[in-house]
Design a protein around this nucleic acid. Structure first.
Lengths: 182, 182
DNA sequence: TTTTGCGTTCGAGCGCGCTCGAAGTCCTAG
DNA sequence: CTAGGACTTCGAGCGCGCTCGAACGCAAAA
């Protein structure tokens, strides 16, 4: 029940807009058919980040990666999974510092699970807040586009609409520009 | 129709979570009962940013603000409206550089309206994309919280649930930790 | 008259998250 | 034998958006 619901919502979230969705779905679902060993280039490719960044994360203490005989990094499945996690959290806006904290909890044993949950829950709330903020901004921008006579609706009325009172936010000029200067 | 719809969505967006919402609604709606003249401190207060930042935006060429006899900044209603706009756009993640561009369009006359719309539409799409990303991340985090036995559902099962196959993303440890080290 | 307080300018500094380049090692293909 | 390419470490640099502090000006209150 819960899982199905989540999946449904994930798919809904994807909805329109092709390319990003495919990639996103891929990342959301595909784990398990991971190669046993991967090179830095392969992992970078998988996560769509640069090898530079991967090394940087390692330097930052977020993962430890084994080396082969030549001193080259060897990413095993577990490490790759962690990298996937880290990348995902970064993408959702969690700062490195928090990630470091979380990782240190993970590395210090199962008894830190409650504290890890605290971190996750807090981050969840942060994401929710951010989504709400963005939704609000989106509304405002859409409104402005609409009153500008933008491409939101079918009938485009350029200027004139904007001479009236801008009762809702998003002002810059179209008010007061009854007789433009140009 | 369109306006009502937008307003509805804005209110929906606020929904839960008190303090932020009140503030947000305030910002979304309240414009028009602006004082004719405001000091930097008042504007800073209104926008909930520091006077430092306000001066910084000015230095960055986003607004020009008049001075009084003492060389102190005097924000008139128009400038304040622009500041509100700028702040809102910043909050929604538009980079300063784009804002500078937009402002330069505004300042160069009504004939730039189409180009301004382009900017707005593009930004709208950016916000939408970001919301989609965040929604996805949110789902993933919620899933992880759930499988951890977090506070998402009513019945909390700590550990044990997490021993199974993590079919969906977000792995770090709870797998493979059948016999924890600690 | 001195102090308090709010403002000014200017330039430097900071935190974050990369991003890059130099210099070196090693393996493989031509 | 040599050239190319993928990797390594290390440290520096960068873009962004503030954020701060020093040194100063002016005006009303103590």
């Amino acid at each position: 029940m819960a899982t199905d619901d989540l999946m449904t919502r994930a798919l809904e979230a994807l909805g329109d807009d092709g390319p990003l969705s495919v990639e996103a779905i891929h990342r959301l679902a595909d784990l398990g058919d991971l190669p046993e060993m991967m090179t830095i280039a392969e992992v970078a490719d998988l996560l769509d980040i640069s090898p530079h960044t991967l090394r940087y994360y390692e330097r930052a203490g977020l993962v430890e990666v084994a080396r082969d005989g030549n001193g080259h990094r060897v990413y095993d499945a577990e490490v790759v999974r962690r990298m996937v996690f880290l990348t995902r959290m970064r993408l959702s806006g969690m700062p490195m510092r928090d990630l470091r904290h979380y990782i240190s909890l993970v590395d210090s044993g199962a008894h830190t699970v409650p504290e890890r949950l605290d971190v996750l829950v807090e981050h969840r709330d942060t994401i929710r807040r951010r989504i709400r903020e963005l939704t609000l901004s989106l509304t405002a921008v859409e409104y402005k586009i609409a009153t500008y006579g933008g491409s939101t609706g079918p009938d485009v009325q350029t200027l004139g609409t904007t001479t009236g009172t801008d009762r809702m936010a998003m002002p810059d000029e179209p008010l007061r520009r009854a007789v433009p200067a140009e």
